[in-house]
């Protein structure tokens, strides 16, 4: 586009706020998705305080109660109960803790592996780059769910194993992106000037390359949190993820699978929680990406 070229772009004051600037920026914030994420984090952190019942407490007298607005339901169990009489609301709240922590830890693991691999490949190049990137490509070619099931089945269901599986499956995306950006930054004039000044490779990596990777890593991570939650839910649903009775959302969906026709609320609410979480993280990630895209931002 002619408009994005330097010559055509209007010159605007750099670093000076418009009188309406702050309000304008606030208005541009994705308030709804960020609010949803904040709510989810509060749920995860304060689950013991918020949940009306312990997540695994059974009450056979209150089995299969519907949500409160349906005949037979009652406000003591606003979202109903499952076939053991466990409170669905409590389980969804506790599920936020389990599912979010799995996803976040897994993303950190994947991000750390991928960033290290990507930086090494991008900065040093040559044979190392070719070897590392072929490995990453091989990982990307693996059908994720299939391998996750095989690994999960072999390793057995546990928190650590789910984290390991997601980490192993997701690091190549970071590696590819980081390698590409490292190559671009390495070719930039300020890195050349750093070499002219006599900076060591360590210094160049630490002060010039890594800090410039962080924004896009955040974007990728926020987009991947959603995917990780879905994968974790899938694994748990298939019984190779978080072991029951721990209330991961996927586990709760699976609990209600046999009774979808009669007691739909058991699966619906954790399913909704998954959908909302994924959507909120994706929208936030999109927003960060747009904010960081120089073409969508005045200089």
């Amino acid at each position: 586009m002619a408009l994005s070229k330097g010559s055509g772009a209007p010159r605007l004051a750099a670093g000076k706020g418009h009188p309406l600037g702050l309000w304008h920026q606030l208005r541009e914030l994705p308030l709804v998705p960020m609010g949803a994420i904040a709510l989810l984090l509060v749920m995860a952190i304060a689950a013991p305080l918020l949940a009306p019942y312990p997540p695994t407490e059974q009450s056979l007298l209150d089995r299969l109660m519907p949500p409160f607005w349906i005949a037979g339901g009652d406000l003591l169990h606003p979202l109903g109960t499952d076939h053991y009489g466990r409170d669905v609301l409590s389980r969804v709240i506790w599920g936020a803790r389990v599912s979010l922590s799995v996803a976040l830890v897994a993303i950190v693991v994947a991000g750390a592996i991928g960033t290290v691999v990507g930086i090494i490949a991008g900065y040093f190049g040559g044979f190392i780059e070719i070897a590392l990137m072929r490995v990453a490509d091989a990982f990307l070619a693996i059908p994720a769910v299939l391998v996750a099931i095989m690994l999960g089945a072999t390793l057995g269901p546990s928190f650590e194993n789910v984290v390991a599986v997601i980490g192993l499956l997701y690091w190549p995306r970071y590696a590819r992106q980081v390698r590409g950006e490292t190559l671009a930054i390495k070719g930039s004039d300020y890195v050349k000037l750093a070499r002219v000044a006599g900076c060591s490779s360590t210094r160049i990596l630490a002060t010039h390359i890594f800090p410039n990777l962080v924004p896009s890593l955040l974007v990728l991570a926020s987009l991947q949190v959603g995917a990780a939650i879905i994968l974790e839910a899938t694994l748990s649903f298939l019984g190779v993820g978080i072991p029951p009775p721990q209330p991961a959302w996927g586990v709760i969906v699976e609990d209600g699978r046999g009774m979808l026709a009669s007691a739909w609320w058991i699966s619906l609410f954790p399913g909704l929680a998954i959908a909302i979480t994924v959507l909120a993280f994706n929208l936030t990630g999109d927003w960060i990406r747009d904010r960081l895209d120089p073409k969508l931002r005045s200089r």
């Binding site: 209007p10 605007l12 418009h18 309406l20 600037g21 309000w23 304008h24 005045s298």
Partner: peptide
């Protein structure tokens, strides 16, 4: 042109 909340 649009700029921030106003125009230039």
């Amino acid at each position: 042109l649009r700029s921030g909340g106003g125009s230039v």
